[in-house]
């Protein structure tokens, strides 16, 4: 019984902190108050200060984590609703996403190799431009570290969110399709949140890019790992 109580406590704690940080974020709209970042920081602090092992926390945390798989499946619905947009711009969308996914994985692997990081860390960095649930899955399938992969996904997301618009402007990427595909392919959900500030077309493009790059990344991940680590 004590076992279940502990699990329930950490599950409820996680949900409560998540809801709290969402309320704070909606109220103050500061990037640093991003609910994932803030919740992670608060929970990590609780574990460290309370000297609570991560495994103990995960007794309840894993309950919440099981929803990731079904959530990835549910991404089929927004993509299906965007199908007209996708099919009328099939070539530019697919070519941009494919090029981005390949360059993202290859550059991540090459840079980490250059600094002689372990194979485990290279495979953890590899899926960083994919949406978190998929990136974690890909990292764990390849032999990387899922929770670290999630951290790199967040770094990529924040990079796209904060510096994306300046980079796009500098490179004269100024069409809705270029902006949307660029943001969604490199910075997944965070990029899509930024695309929302440009407009409806950018948002749709970015969410299509986020979903398709996740699928493509999951397909190409093992191939990229095999090719680049030869």
């Amino acid at each position: 019984m004590a076992f279940n109580l502990t699990a329930a406590f950490f599950a409820v704690l996680t949900v409560s902190i998540y809801l709290l940080t969402n309320v704070l974020y909606l109220k103050y709209r500061k990037t640093l108050l991003n609910p994932v970042l803030a919740s992670t920081a608060i929970l990590a602090l609780i574990l460290v200060l309370g000297n609570i092992p991560y495994d103990t926390y995960m007794m309840g945390g894993s309950w919440i984590g099981t929803l990731l798989g079904p959530a990835v499946v549910a991404l089929a619905i927004p993509l299906y609703k965007q199908r007209d947009l996708l099919f009328t711009n099939m070539l530019p969308i697919l070519s941009g996403i494919a090029a981005g996914v390949v360059v993202g994985m290859a550059s991540g692997v090459l840079f980490t190799q250059l600094f002689r990081f372990s194979e485990e860390l290279i495979l953890t960095v590899l899926p960083k431009s994919l949406t978190t649930p998929v990136a974690m899955q890909v990292a764990s399938n390849l032999g990387g570290i899922p929770s670290l992969a999630a951290v790199f996904v967040m770094v990529a997301g924040f990079t796209g969110y904060i510096v994306g618009p300046a980079l796009l402007k500098w490179l004269h990427i100024d069409s809705p399709i270029g902006r949307g595909i660029g943001l969604g392919t490199s910075a997944h959900g965070m990029g899509t949140a930024k695309a929302f500030e440009y407009g409806q077309q950018e948002t749709s493009m970015s969410s299509v890019a986020m979903t398709l790059s996740a699928v493509l990344g999951a397909l190409l991940g093992p191939v990229a790992a095999w090719l680049l680590l030869l």
Partner: peptide
């Protein structure tokens, strides 16, 4: 959606 991966991101304490 973002709630579901928080338990995993908290795992960063181990690294």
């Amino acid at each position: 959606l973002s709630l579901y991966f928080i338990p995993a991101t908290v795992g960063v304490v181990e690294y």
